[in-house]
């Protein structure tokens, strides 16, 4: 039996943190550019959403992301 994959801790929900629903054609770079003015800061969004994102290059339309 394969060992269970460790589940990343679910970040505590902060009602004041912004949310964004991924649209078709979005990338984390593009979202970071929209919210931060700098696509290179996409890692901030990836780190804040590790409970739903396994790979920063794989986001799906309809996914709700926290924008720290």
């Amino acid at each position: 039996m394969a060992p269970e994959e460790p589940v990343p801790p679910v970040p505590k929900e902060n009602p004041y943190a912004q949310k964004y629903v991924v649209k078709k054609g979005d990338t984390l770079w593009k979202i970071a550019d929209e919210f931060y003015g700098d696509g290179k800061l996409y890692t901030k969004i990836f780190e804040a959403n590790q409970d739903v994102l396994k790979d920063p290059d794989k986001i799906k339309p309809g996914q709700e992301l926290r924008i720290p």
Partner: peptide
């Protein structure tokens, strides 16, 4: 929430 965004924006090359 504000602190987080301010910290990130101060690292940004340009503002949104």
């Amino acid at each position: 929430a504000v602190q987080s965004r301010v910290d990130i924006l101060t690292q940004s090359k340009k503002l949104p």
